[in-house]
Design a protein around this nucleic acid. Structure first.
Length: 192
DNA sequence: ACCGGGATGTTCT
DNA sequence: GAACATCCCGGTG
């Protein structure tokens, strides 16, 4: 288990996203293997929060790679992205699902409504609940592990042939096939 | 199993 | 004032 290098994230999110599969997202003993991601490609991408330029909300996305962009959605939920690309490029990867690997008791407590373990982290807002990620964590550095949040490499390579499809829940930019999954994993938010 | 709708508040027009 | 990178619950088959 070693932290992913910052240079790993200093590339376009569409390149990094499939490679992020099977890395571990961890926080203070709660961990999960990343099994579903979506790439957002900044100002070129009508589906990205950064499409209309930098705002207060999207400041972190425009910053250096290796940080967490956390946003609030539908009045209820938090979702987390890994910021990619060099400084000034609003490239990011939405982490959409984890296969829980450690700290299951804490996750079940944080997600009391989840009936089965496969419901703990099978969605972008569910996994934030399970790991206790909120707006307070916006901007934290996942390389050095601010606030206990890290992305680690446990030696498992990404899938040779990840499943690929269009992104979920968008009204603009729906045409781009920038969602990648570990095919067949039981923790996906939806099959491809 | 699948589908429809409500929750709830920040962000941007 | 509308839209929103979602989730959960309660209906019906």
């Amino acid at each position: 288990m070693q932290p992913v290098d910052r240079e790993f994230f200093r590339r376009d999110s569409r390149i990094v996203a499939p490679e992020l599969l099977n890395k571990q997202l961890t926080r203070n003993g709660r961990s999960g293997r990343i099994v579903e991601v979506e790439a957002y490609a900044g100002s070129e991408d009508a589906g990205s929060h950064a499409y209309r330029g930098q705002t207060e909300r999207t400041t972190v996305m425009f910053g250096p790679p290796g940080h967490l962009y956390v946003y609030f959605i539908y009045g209820i939920h938090w979702c987390a992205n890994a910021v990619c690309g060099d400084d000034g490029h609003a490239s990011a990867i939405l982490i959409r699902a984890l296969a829980p690997t450690a700290g299951l008791e804490d996750m079940r407590r944080a997600r009391a409504k989840a009936r089965r373990d496969r419901d703990l982290c099978s969605g972008p807002a569910k996994l934030c609940q399970a790991l206790g990620i909120t707006g307070d964590d916006n901007g934290c550095d996942v390389i050095i592990g601010d606030r206990g949040i890290q992305i680690l490499d446990d030696g498992t390579p990404p899938p040779v042939e990840p499943g690929q499809g269009t992104r979920i829940g968008l009204s603009a930019g729906v045409e781009h096939p920038w969602r990648w999954v570990v095919t067949g994993d039981s923790n996906l938010s939806r099959p491809v």
